[in-house]
Computed example of a mutant assay.
Amino acid sequence: MTIPPRNPPTEELSWTLTHSGGVLGRVRATVRDALGGWGRPPDRADDVVQVVSELVGNVLRHTHGEAELTLSPTPDGVEIAVGDHARDLLVLQRPANGDGGYGLCLLDMLTTTWSVEQHEAGKHVRARIRR
């Protein structure tokens, strides 16, 4: 993971993430740092970090390529975008057992809105969280 220099609070931040040990921990810390730099309330940071962790974790767990993470400040919160090179669509479902599958339910609960945009090279999942 290459961490860009700190940008002014009005600019989005983007990272290319690879399958490497400890990447999710570094992503969580970097997202918290970015939110603090933007002056976002700490009580909302947990939700943003959880959503980012879930989306990036799914890409790293279920694909072999890189993940693209973009974090953008909005007037009323934060927008998260995670792209990958897999064309599989995401389907919101209620898991039947405790072996996982709760990611999209969590995404649905913690975000104001979310969507999946499919493109030729894969997809982007976008989510917004209000302050």
Rank of each mutant, 00 (worst) to 15 (best):
V52L: 03
L35S: 08
E66H: 10
L104R: 00
R94Y: 11
G25N: 06
V52A: 12
V31M: 02
I80E: 05
K123M: 15
V49G: 01
T30N: 02
A81Q: 11
L17W: 01
Q50M: 13
S72M: 11
L104N: 01
G22C: 08
L24Q: 02
E66G: 00
V48Q: 03
H64S: 13
R26S: 07
D43C: 05
E11M: 12
V56K: 05
A34V: 15
N58W: 03
P5N: 04
D76S: 14
A127R: 07
T111E: 04
M109Q: 13
A45T: 10
G98A: 11
H85V: 03
G39M: 05
W15E: 00
D76G: 04
N58P: 01
A45M: 10
R87I: 10
A127S: 09
S115C: 08
A67N: 03
H124R: 13
G103T: 00
T112A: 12
V116N: 01
H62N: 09
E117F: 00
V59I: 05
L89G: 14
A86K: 01
V91K: 12
P95S: 06
R32N: 10
Q93H: 13
V48K: 05
L35R: 11
N97S: 14
V125M: 02
L69Y: 06
R32A: 14
R130V: 15
W15N: 00
L69S: 05
V78S: 07
Q50W: 05
E79K: 13
D46L: 09
Y102S: 03
G37S: 06
R26N: 01
E54A: 02
P73K: 11
A86R: 10
S72R: 15
H119W: 08
W15C: 12
K123G: 04
V31E: 08
G122K: 08
T111M: 06
L35D: 09
V59T: 11
V27C: 10
V125P: 03
R94A: 07
P75T: 08
R128G: 01
W15R: 10
A34L: 08
E79W: 02
L90N: 10
R87H: 10
L110A: 05
E54Q: 09
H19Q: 08
D108W: 06
P42K: 08
G57C: 07
G98W: 06
V49T: 08
V27I: 14
R44Y: 13
G83R: 11
P73G: 10
E12M: 13
V56W: 03
L60S: 03
P73C: 12
R26K: 03
S14D: 07
L13K: 02
D99R: 14
W38A: 14
P9Y: 09
L13G: 06
V82Y: 09
L107K: 02
C105T: 14
R130A: 15
D99K: 12
R28H: 10
V125K: 05
H85G: 10
L13R: 13
